[in-house]
Design a protein around this nucleic acid. Sequence first.
DNA 1: ACCGAACTGTCAGCTAGCCGACATTTCTGT
DNA 2: ACAGAAATGTCGGCTAGCTGACAGTTCGGT
Lengths: 225, 225
Amino acid sequence: MYEELKYWYLRDHKLFRVLSFSQIKQLCIIVGFKKAAKGEIIYFSDSDVPRIFLLKRGAIKIVSVDADGNEIIREIIQKGDLFGELELDSQKSANEYAKVLSDEVSICSFLMSDFEDLLLRHPQLALTYTKFVGLKMKRIRNNYTNLVSKDAKSRLRQFLLDWIEKEGKIEGDSATLENYLTQNDIAQIICTSRQTAVQLLNELESDGILSYSRREIHFPKLSLL
Amino acid sequence: MYEELKYWYLRDHKLFRVLSFSQIKQLCIIVGFKKAAKGEIIYFSDSDVPRIFLLKRGAIKIVSVDADGNEIIREIIQKGDLFGELELDSQKSANEYAKVLSDEVSICSFLMSDFEDLLLRHPQLALTYTKFVGLKMKRIRNNYTNLVSKDAKSRLRQFLLDWIEKEGKIEGDSATLENYLTQNDIAQIICTSRQTAVQLLNELESDGILSYSRREIHFPKLSLL
DNA sequence: ACCGAACTGTCAGCTAGCCGACATTTCTGT
DNA sequence: ACAGAAATGTCGGCTAGCTGACAGTTCGGT
């Protein structure tokens, strides 16, 4: 992989903004790079050394298999997100893997040990990283609260709002999402059954709040959501 | 506050173990210290500067008030735990406060800015702290998973096991917990109603798994849980 | 020793949402 | 172009657990 490319991959991630131009150039911690197509499964926990991944393009879901063999969605990773053992504790969670959702993804990775060294050499980066992880924690905790105190419909609305905020193409008061999730995925994310999710989506549709298709979801009036 | 005391307060926290004897002595970042009795409410978010707190003795719960005015338990903080704006993002969560659960608590605090400086000067500490926050995130995520996939009874069992692991006096195959929680608290922690929690506790009691009283919970045979 | 407040215990009715079963539509590979 | 697979829709029965209502118990303060 060209040094030049590595540079850019790190450069435009907000985590590394605290580093100077030349510092980034010296990094060279990226060791892996791969592409994968829709539906492919990536076992990132079975590589012998712990890694941290950076999703450059597309979207994937992290799923784990419970005792009964059901897939449960742990997390949706989107363009620009870091994933893997962010906790830096190298203890691999068994039977967890990633599944590609969008048509194509690009992922690059670096070794956790390299990353740790980097944090040690750049305390400011370590601080930023901690805040980064903290933010993630906050988001998880928010979901948790929603799950407890809101019903399925509110959770769906909230999820859609979050999604729009992250990836929506907004034009005035309307917005469009490229829909790489199945209704089953959506159901799992908002922690409900597929049947309930379908029903809720259709309710929103007949209320004129959105129009749903396999390819995209359109919101004619954002303020309604 | 005596320097000597400050020293010891930090010294025996696992987070600061990476620092050398003399490094700790130089810290002096502790700026506040207070005691409080059962039932007292501590607003830690209204102090003008963001702080991080260390609970030296006792137990408290972090609660926040939702839109309808209900208290919801965010977190139980026990002896030795850090709390406050661990994410280091200084953005105060409105209407969140702490309530003392045990008979008495001792809390010391330091300024977030001091702590950040400290992390910058000691990269190794920053790394440890990051892992620390990461661990917390992992625990929250686990609860989340339990909430989704397990029923109330399993969640209660899991909670009791966790509690025993943290604070139980274990003797052979039996264990005892000092019970500073009301059944209402327990209910909220495992995300169910008080009535359901009562029922479940009584079920466990008539199964001979535990004996519950306001003061303590005793488990005659841990293996049953 | 007493009173009020907080906590604990129990019951019955109700409902959000799960689950299984099935029909229909859309996509994908050959 | 076609078959099979995957995704989407729809229905009705069922149940875990919520809610309200109330009674009994324990605790802390005066």
